[in-house]
Design a protein around this nucleic acid. Structure first.
Lengths: 217, 217
DNA sequence: AAAAGTATGTTGCGTTTGCAACAAAAAGGA
DNA sequence: TCCTTTTTGTTGCAAACGCAACATACTTTT
């Protein structure tokens, strides 16, 4: 458990001995869930900060008609529930189901925000880390949105690739996605994207091989 | 100034007299900017929490080639810079330019996160409010993303409208957008969207008049 | 009530896209 | 090295879409 927590951005900059102190001071609970059971139940559970320590889980939303939509997959090390906890909702609007036997660390956001009586200085760092995590997700979403806003596949590709070039300060760079993942990320059909990439290469806009790209200036 | 601040979600639940105390205790600065001057300069300014008190401004990003992209418009009451401040960046990656003479309140995130020496209890509320704001933006982005992920106009419309129905607990509801705004929000062409709405009405999927919609169950 | 302005709906056309099915190339395992 | 699996590229086709230009309906102003 400590291995996962020590590496987790939520506890960045916090030493091991302090971590244990914090966890007890925040009355965190480590809890196990059997495969198929619900870690959070939509419209019933009070939203908490969850860290999946082991196992796999899914975030699920059921609509009015009762059909379930999978919003996301969780694996060991993943943080979940933080958006709803930080929003201060009293009921969480999604469910989280254990797809394997799971071990979970649950933290109460209110305990996190209130400076504890023993003036534990790491609370401040913890809150700053949480803010950092939520803000970073925010920026990642904004970034993705700025690509997807473009209506054509070429527009999305150029927006994405030019951003990568800018962020690596180089016209040549490697992307972290394979074609399938990139197409998913940009919300387009893989084969159509492949076709467009081919066209762009033929037009001399760029060159690429697998994950290595080069933009022509 | 106090009128705007009192209504601002960042200071929700904080009384007027406490607000003034907080602002001084956080060493906030109220600053004026002439039209055309930069409130933040990309890659130079240290990111702060900004609240536009009066005037209008634009968030701008310049790419490698120097052409500027308008990321967003700001008007009185708007919060800006919070994402980058909360991420703990040392330089802000975008510029904010005053489009009119502007008055701005600037807050240092670090002062906000550190409990002040006089144990001002409202700091906690302030941080909770900030977390709430960032998390809420997060959820709004996620929501929009869940619509745009659909590849067809009809898919996006149904995702959006069904979500509205669910959130109002009714098949009949009013949307907050006109056609232009809705098309922009869903990243589709207005006329194509209008055409699709017409088709869906003819197929009996839904009915609508202006901003009033009804989904057929 | 008429005029001007804004919002919404309609339509034709060429392009882009998703989809499906297959081909080729690269990576990984035995 | 051979075989299997995965990844990437190709292509035909029908459907969906963006775009532009215009028509109609509703609002606001005077």
């Amino acid at each position: 458990m400590n291995k996962i927590l020590m590496k987790h951005p939520l506890f960045a900059g916090i030493a091991l001995q302090d971590l244990n102190h914090i966890l007890s001071c925040m009355e965190s609970r480590q809890q196990s869930f059997n495969e198929g059971s619900f870690i959070f139940l939509a419209d019933e559970s009070y939203p908490k900060l969850g860290i999946l320590l082991s196992g796999k889980a899914q975030v699920i939303k059921e609509n009015m008609f009762g059909d379930r939509m999978i919003i996301g997959a969780l694996e060991a090390g993943n943080l979940f529930g933080e958006t709803y906890a930080c929003m201060g909702l009293s009921k969480i609007p999604v469910s989280v189901e254990a797809m394997e036997d799971c071990s979970v660390l649950l933290l109460d956001i209110n305990r996190m925000l209130k400076t504890c009586s023993n003036a534990c200085t790491f609370h401040q760092r913890l809150v700053a880390n949480l803010l950092n995590i939520v803000a970073t997700k925010n920026m990642q979403l904004n970034r993705k949105m700025s690509y997807i806003t473009h209506k054509t596949i070429r527009g999305r590709l150029l927006a994405y690739l030019e951003d990568q070039a800018e962020r690596t300060n180089s016209d040549a760079f490697e992307i972290p996605f394979n074609r399938n993942e990139l197409a998913d990320y940009l919300c387009v059909d893989r084969s159509a994207m492949s076709r467009e990439l081919g066209r762009m290469k033929k037009e001399g806009l760029l060159d690429f091989s697998r994950k290595a790209f080069r933009l022509q200036v």
